[in-house]
Design a protein around this nucleic acid. Structure first.
Lengths: 146, 146
DNA sequence: TAAATAAAAGACAAATTTATCCTTTATACA
DNA sequence: TGTATAAAGGATAAATTTGTCTTTTATTTA
């Protein structure tokens, strides 16, 4: 469904929001330890998100990543689109380039409603909401150690 | 959503069903021309499907691929599972290995209903049904030439 | 202003997916 | 029975995705 990059990206933003109290910044090392993701690779994904102003960052001492109030309110679809593009919501299920309403692939209409559901779900879910779920201990972002 | 392999595989079986009249066999060359797919690569995918008894094949003169009556009635999920496995229906949206009802990722429940919808759709759609849609000219399997 | 810190960025490597080519095997039919 | 045909299978290559390492840039603070 999502690429590995996107999975890491989503987990990272959720962790940042869940971990930074009062605008405190979170370092890439801490982020990756807490979401079980490769550090340098995830750093590059966060670079994409900062360039797209979905995440904020600060270099130097006490630097790190954080989300301002506006960014916390962003929907998950912003993260997904920045990393994986819009193919998941707009592309043909069978990979046809010219699939459309007037020139549909055999699963076009059935696929369309699923695509729309995915899109709707990602539009209606905010980063903050998912961060709160982590804060409250209602969900996790990494495999539990035994 | 689906891998390229799976897209080719689905398009191939639909074409075979739509093109083979009275159990006639369809060659890999004809298949690939009509679904815009690389021949040798698609051949390997059809090998997977024949090994899984989703498609039938015959070597030699007048050989090729075809689907018997039972196979035509198979649901699309058989094709997808044979090629891409069950990850799409069972895997975690954020890629967590131990995501579950009792140890959910932040989007677990929202994702679950979408996964189920995809599964249901693939279970309810038969290869034959899609082949008929092509036969009737109601849908296409390749980009139209201008 | 210099040192320490942490993100940004560039270069490179591994792994996986996608694609191609060549040989082998099975089948039909002349 | 031999030849043509077409799928099966093996080996290899290209492309993309994922992952790592090193250098550069910006910022804080002593």
């Amino acid at each position: 469904m999502f690429s590995k990059s996107c999975e890491y990206g989503i987990r990272a933003v959720i962790y940042i929001v869940s971990a930074s109290k009062n605008g405190e910044r979170v370092g890439i090392g801490e982020i990756c330890q807490n979401i079980d993701a490769p550090e340098h690779f995830t750093a590059k994904i966060l670079q994409i998100l900062t360039r797209n102003r979905i995440v904020s960052s600060q270099k130097g001492v006490h630097g790190g990543f954080y989300l301002d109030d506006y960014q916390k309110g962003l929907a998950l679809i912003e993260v997904v689109t920045a990393i994986d593009g819009k193919t998941l919501f707009t592309g043909c299920g069978l990979g046809l380039k010219q699939c459309s309403e007037t020139n549909p692939c055999p699963i076009h209409s059935k696929f369309k409603s699923i695509r729309n559901d995915i899109k709707k779900m990602l539009e209606q879910t905010t980063i903050e909401e998912l961060g709160n779920s982590i804060k409250k201990g209602k969900s996790v972002l990494k495999t539990l150690k035994i």
